[in-house]
Structures are given as structure tokens and as C-alpha cells.
Design a protein around this nucleic acid. Structure first.
Length: 203
DNA sequence: TATACGATTGGCT
DNA sequence: GCCAATCGTATAT
């Protein structure tokens, strides 16, 4: 969990994320991740402005879970990358469910096919039942209810720009297993920085 | 205290 | 393709 954040992100592909809950166990294999670098280095990162209350966990020890609330609706999860104090993390964007598929389905009734169970960062946390109570969990502790461990390496790795951001879009810090069906669809980020003026004056 | 905005998703046109 | 949902967080006042 040390080294340049993009290399760590790449190395997380194929790893398993396992959650144990009262209703059972779900495990998935990561097929898509994104790297977010630390304070002052990456304007798209929540750590960009330093250890604010929200981003504080990002500056802690590596291997912990950073969970944030997205669009007033969803929770998304990151793996904190070391060294402590730097603020780097890897967003878990998608995975293929390898254990507890029926349970994951019951948690995500909107998913019509298995491929969609964890296809997207908020879908992934829903399928694994990860939420705000899991903030700061040590993913490397085998007794944790949310754990990370080695899995089958990806057959091939593709890279490209990160999804849903409006700054630092030039960095190819999204990594996915080439041809994995569970990889989410690319959507460009929020506001464009510049907009071409329209002749009719409307925006 | 007030306000603007998202590391998204699902449903609808 | 478009857009509402829905509220924590950061920033301005």
C-alpha cells in the first residue's frame, strides 16, 4: 500500500474486497479503480485542500477505508494509500461479485444482471453494504468486517481519464481490467471550465 | 448563517 | 440523451 498512488491503484486490480455483515458475506474482485493523489498535487482529490474533517482519514495510515457521501445520495469507498500524511487514496469504482451473489442482488434490486451488481462506485458500496459506519476500517486486518486481499491478477490493464471530474482531466489515472464486463461507462465530469459562446445567446 | 456544488445513479424521453 | 434526487462539505458573507 506504498509507492506512487497510480502504481498502487493498478496493483489493486484483481484484489478481493470482502464484507461480513449480519445478513451474510459478499466478496468481489476489483475490475476498475481510480487514483487520487494528495494535498496540493491533485485538484480533483478530496485531499487537495488538506486534512479537512471529511478528508482527514486520507491523511492517516495506509490500508484504511475512506468513505464519502456523494451527491446527497450515495456512499463511495477508497483505499487510503501511504505514506501517512500525504493524503493519497484509490477509489474503488467497480468489481465482479465472486461470493454472495444472491445477497448482493437482494441489496441491489435495480441490477437486472450480475454484471451490474457492482458496476460503479456507489453500486459497489451498495452491493458490499459499505456505509459511513465503515469509515477508518483497517482493510488489511483479517478480523475486520471489511477486508482486502490478493486475488487473480487482471488479464490486461487499460488506462484513461478519471470519471465525473471537471479538473485534472488530463491525468490517465483510471485503471480497469481490459474487457471486463463490470467496468463502468465513462461519463465526463460536471461543469466544463470553458464554454463556447452560442450565437443565440442561450447558455 | 447562507449558498453552491458534487469522485452518482436510475428512470424517463 | 436528459434530469431529479438529496444533503454533507467547503466557502463566502
Amino acid at each position: 500500500m506504498l509507492g506512487p498512488v497510480d502504481e498502487v491503484a493498478r496493483s489493486l486490480l484483481g484484489c478481493w474486497v470482502v464484507t461480513d455483515r449480519p445478513d451474510g458475506r459478499v466478496a468481489l474482485r476489483l475490475t476498475e479503480v481510480e487514483a487520487y493523489s494528495g494535498q496540493g498535487e491533485d485538484p480533483a482529490s478530496h485531499a487537495h485542500r488538506g486534512p479537512t474533517p471529511r478528508a482527514e482519514i486520507m491523511f492517516g495510515p495506509p490500508g484504511r477505508l475512506y468513505v464519502y457521501f456523494s451527491y446527497g445520495v450515495h456512499w463511495c469507498a477508497n483505499v487510503v494509500v501511504g505514506p501517512a500524511g500525504r493524503g493519497s487514496a484509490v477509489l474503488m469504482r467497480a468489481g465482479e461479485v465472486v461470493l454472495g451473489e444472491s445477497l448482493a442482488h437482494s441489496r441491489r434490486p435495480a441490477a437486472r444482471v450480475a454484471r451490474d451488481l457492482a458496476r460503479g462506485p456507489a453500486r459497489l458500496t451498495h452491493a458490499l453494504a459499505i456505509g459511513p459506519d465503515d469509515r477508518g476500517t483497517d482493510l488489511l486486518d483479517p478480523t475486520s468486517p471489511v477486508r482486502l486481499h490478493a486475488g487473480r491478477a487482471p488479464s490486461g490493464v487499460s488506462t484513461g481519464p478519471r470519471v465525473g471530474i471537471s479538473v485534472a482531466t488530463e491525468l490517465p489515472w483510471r485503471f480497469w481490467e481490459t474487457d471486463a464486463p463490470s467496468v463502468s461507462v465513462f461519463r465526463a465530469g460536471g461543469k466544463p471550465r470553458r464554454r463556447v459562446a452560442r450565437q443565440d445567446g442561450r447558455s
